[in-house]
């Protein structure tokens, strides 16, 4: 079979439409995941039950495949609870929790990279712990781990492709539909490959701009 893009031209807008679905999940999960990660990394600075619980949570989400997590949440758990979530809710929950686990680890490393002397100096000035966290630790930690965070966001955009399994019509799912309709694989796959690539190049450039903005040395 010859390569013939003419055969799929009419489907290109449909494939491009998947960008919105993919971005919607990726952005929502990135925001929710970051918020959770921030809370986790701050809470786990103090030893205790909370720290252990967060560690178990992180181990679970880093230690099992994303595909499994999505299947478990969308098909496994409803068997027990009887509540069947919409694919969108399942995707959002699983991706948020999954990226929060990775981001919490990244943030923890960032927080540990801050020199303890600065924290002592702030304590010695009578500054409250809250202000130390938000004005001294987090700004420097974020800047130190920004490349790792952007990496995680790029991974997130790519991994959203597994939502096709729970029949969300993201970019990947749309390719399958187009391939089924046209009996062509090479062309639609090439198109969605380019779509993913362009999205992530844009994302990584945003990261570079942010890095430059946050630079102080």
């Amino acid at each position: 079979m010859k390569v013939n893009f003419g055969a799929i031209v009419e489907y290109i807008p449909y494939l491009l439409g998947g960008i919105l679905v993919t971005l919607e999940i990726a952005i929502a999960a990135a925001l929710l995941g970051s918020l959770l990660a921030l809370i986790f990394s701050l809470l786990s600075r103090k030893k205790g039950i909370l720290q252990s619980a967060i560690k178990v949570f992180i181990d679970f989400f880093r230690g099992t495949p994303l595909l499994f997590q999505l299947a478990f949440f969308h098909f496994g758990i409803p068997q027990i609870t009887g509540i069947i979530p919409t694919p969108y809710i399942s995707a959002l929950v699983v991706f948020s929790l999954n990226s929060s686990a990775y981001l919490a680890e990244i943030l923890r490393a960032g927080i540990e990279s801050i020199d303890k002397g600065q924290i002592e100096a702030a304590h010695a000035l009578g500054v409250k712990s809250w202000d130390i966290s938000f004005s001294i630790i987090i700004p420097q930690a974020l800047r130190n781990v920004l490349p790792a965070i952007m990496n995680e966001f790029i991974t997130l955009v790519k991994e959203t492709s597994v939502v096709s399994m729970i029949s969300l019509t993201d970019i990947m799912r749309r390719q399958q539909i187009v391939s089924a309709a046209t009996y062509r694989f090479f062309e639609p796959l090439l198109v969605i490959g380019i779509i993913y690539l362009v999205m992530n190049i844009v994302l990584s450039n945003i990261g570079k701009i942010l890095e430059r903005k946050l630079k102080y040395d």
Binding site: Q118, A121, L125, G126, V127, S135, D217
Partner: peptide, 25 residues
């Protein structure tokens, strides 16, 4: 308190270092 290793806030200018506790405390 003044420390052996200065312990200045690395992400703040000299002026901001001095201003920080004045604003927050």
């Amino acid at each position: 308190m003044v420390f052996q290793n200065f312990n200045l806030f690395a992400h703040m200018s000299a002026k901001k270092n001095v201003m920080f506790a004045l604003l927050k405390v």
